[in-house]
Design a protein around this nucleic acid. Sequence first.
DNA 1: ACAATGCTTCGGCTACCATCGAAGCATGAA
DNA 2: TTCATGCTTCGATGGTAGCCGAAGCATTGT
Lengths: 232, 232
Amino acid sequence: MKSGPDIAMVASLVGDPARANMLTALMNGRALTASELAQEAGITPQTASSHLSKLEAGGLVEPEKQGRHRYYRLTDDDVAGVLEGLAGLAARTGHMRVRTGPKDPALRRARICYDHLAGDLGVQMLDSLRQRQLVRQRKQDIELTTEGERFLAKHLQISPDMLSHPRRPVCKACLDWSERRHHLAGTLGAALMQRFAELKWACRDATPGSRVVNFTRTGEKQFAALFGNGKD
Amino acid sequence: MKSGPDIAMVASLVGDPARANMLTALMNGRALTASELAQEAGITPQTASSHLSKLEAGGLVEPEKQGRHRYYRLTDDDVAGVLEGLAGLAARTGHMRVRTGPKDPALRRARICYDHLAGDLGVQMLDSLRQRQLVRQRKQDIELTTEGERFLAKHLQISPDMLSHPRRPVCKACLDWSERRHHLAGTLGAALMQRFAELKWACRDATPGSRVVNFTRTGEKQFAALFGNGKD
DNA sequence: ACAATGCTTCGGCTACCATCGAAGCATGAA
DNA sequence: TTCATGCTTCGATGGTAGCCGAAGCATTGT
């Protein structure tokens, strides 16, 4: 009869409310952990896990393992485009979506991720390093270039021997929680954050449990001078 | 929490295999009857009816009543676009579709629809009449213009009084089975077909039960001269 | 008038699948 | 090592929706 490019199969994936909520939560191109997606969909983690497996098998999402977390993102913008189209059709006979409000702005701006800088400024820093060829990134792997080593020694007094560690890479791409793009982890990420603190450019927030990193006025300027993208 | 433009709702409509088969069958922009769609999907008419109601409620298809038939078409090309996109996503992890073979070519070319001409030539004729302003069509309603009346009288010896009937319109748009576009029905459609037979341009096929209309060599030329679109 | 065709509605059956509890791995922290 | 966290797998349950038989309208044809 007819075999078909199983349009029904992929459509049924989106057709489940829980999965649809997950997918729309991923529509901004960022990545979310399995737990976060479960919360978005209002289901338990084990149910979400089942759904995510199916979405992955259907090629709609791609996982990225990060420590004990598992981040999921849409496979590419083709998927986003189809979802956008479906939303357009749905909007004809339904109502519009209302997004939840933003979280703590300071936390999104700059915070500690384990021992390195995360948030808007963290992502910005890695962007700057990449753009100026101070690091070379191939997929998940990042390595420091010789120009990068010179740059660190000259401006931040960080020497390569300070960065060596038995079981930890110097550079590592870490998926940013708020920006959902990579920032710099590894011993270099930790060393940079430590240096920022030593230079009184920034320090962790006083309130216990907080992950916020407060930059000083001069610290912000110095940081922008080294890693600015021109917008700050 | 989140209301959403129920993307899941419309996706679940496409997500059912039976409905997906119907929708893909409608992808060429033509219209199909409920029974035909049922056969396409391999389900009974009553099941198809249920599916078509849902698709209509979801705004994916639109019905057009035609006698005791009910033709369905995709609402617009936005719907087709989304289906196309879904097919694209599905093609990544699936196999391609194989279409069923064509039917009797003569039947598609020219046939009787009740008492008027249908098929490729029938659609072509209405196209020609519309294009030359001999009829005016607004949605389903068609009316003969004064130029049209002159044209009929001059070339085919059809006068307006031959076309009046107590309970039947002069012109009517009739959805074509093979072309899935409108051809001309009504008393004018019947009168034209009758005239074609009288002029020995065409006659119904001899085999009983056949709806094929055979055009003579000269008849085809005359017809093309009056209603040709330049391609024949 | 009656019959035939096309489609819909109704009722019940069945199968699938989303959901969650509990247990099992894996990773990271102490 | 031991504990905690994040996620997955397993098993069982329940609700939902597709499906068809039978009957009911609507339209057309005789």
